[in-house]
């Protein structure tokens, strides 16, 4: 046994050592706080991105039969209602876009996009929304406080609120994450417009379709490969994406913008506190002068 070290920590701590230890641990806490944001983000990653559960929706194949809507309602036990948007009882909806002159039309399936870096997950103050390691963005209804920041943050307008309830919850598609066969909607689609699979393979499949018909698809790209940092719900369309309600987001995820601001928080706190303390000490001597000064300019 090494008695020496024991002695050092047990009895022989000088004032200077103590200050060193205190200083080091303060720095340690600051560093831990600074890096915790990163750690939290990475602990969720789980499977590599190409292995994530995903769906490919080919708008040019969809005939708008809405069997996917019905399957979703059935599987999730949702009440019938007459709405034209996602809602507390509608996790997916097919809408048809028709251009003003009537020459162009397309279907679009609205549902949660299951972003690679979801805004809702980053925004939720109580972490009721999480991104599972294999892709789906899911919601813990026992934790949610109903602040509705996720609804504000989602660029696709997906999270819906069950306004009719006295104690409402957020409602949205969870990619049927606990259903062994995969999402009910994809299973039902009679045309193969909606395909469930691994994200990497689906992107590959989409690109093959584009290669086969180079002029058919808008911008010859699949929406969600990179848009807004990427999604697990991938979309092919013949019309411009904006026309079917897909916002131009660029390739960076929305939370990455906010993260710049939130990640400086611990440093800012320490910085302001340190600055204030040093100003306090430096201006202490002026105290008496200031009392008699009184002027304004």
């Amino acid at each position: 046994m090494n008695n020496n070290s024991c002695q050092t920590c047990g009895t022989d701590v000088s004032r200077r050592d103590f200050l060193k230890i205190a200083g080091a641990s303060t720095c340690g806490i600051a560093v831990a706080a600074l890096t915790s944001g990163e750690a939290l983000a990475s602990s969720n990653e789980g499977l590599p991105l190409e292995e994530h559960k995903a769906m490919l929706y080919d708008s040019t194949v969809c005939i708008g039969c809405k069997q996917c809507e019905a399957a979703c309602k059935l599987d999730n036990n949702l009440a019938e209602e007459d709405v034209n948007d996602l809602s507390g009882n509608t996790f997916t909806i097919i809408k048809e876009y028709i251009s003003e002159d009537g020459t162009e039309s397309a279907f679009r399936k609205y549902q949660c996009m299951h972003c690679v870096e979801p805004s809702c997950v980053a925004s939720c103050p109580v972490a009721a929304l999480t991104k599972l390691g294999d892709g789906p963005v899911v919601y813990d209804e026992d934790v949610c406080i109903g602040c509705r920041y996720c609804m504000q943050a989602c660029p696709y307008g997906v999270p819906a609120y069950d306004w009719s309830q006295a104690y409402p919850l957020i409602r949205k598609c969870d990619l049927c994450y606990d259903r062994p066969e995969g999402p009910a909607c994809a299973e039902t689609c009679p045309k193969g417009a909606l395909i469930y699979g691994k994200r990497g393979e689906l992107i590959q499949m989409a690109k093959e379709r584009i290669a086969l018909n180079p002029d058919k698809y808008y911008e010859n790209r699949v929406f969600g490969e990179h848009d807004g940092g990427g999604t697990s719900f991938l979309i092919l369309a013949a019309v411009p994406f904006e026309k079917i309600g897909l916002p131009p987001l660029g390739n960076e995820s929305l939370p990455s913008h906010t993260h710049t601001a939130t990640s400086v928080v611990p440093g800012l706190f320490a910085g302001v506190a340190g600055l204030m303390s040093s100003i306090y000490i430096r201006t202490k001597d002026n105290e008496d002068d200031d009392l008699h000064e009184g002027g304004t300019t």
Binding site: P125, V126, A127, I145, Y149, P255, T262
Partner: peptide
Amino acid sequence: RAYHFLIYPNLNSAL
């Protein structure tokens, strides 16, 4: 559940 923000922290959230 107002107290949940005390016990279910999401350190990434500005809110």
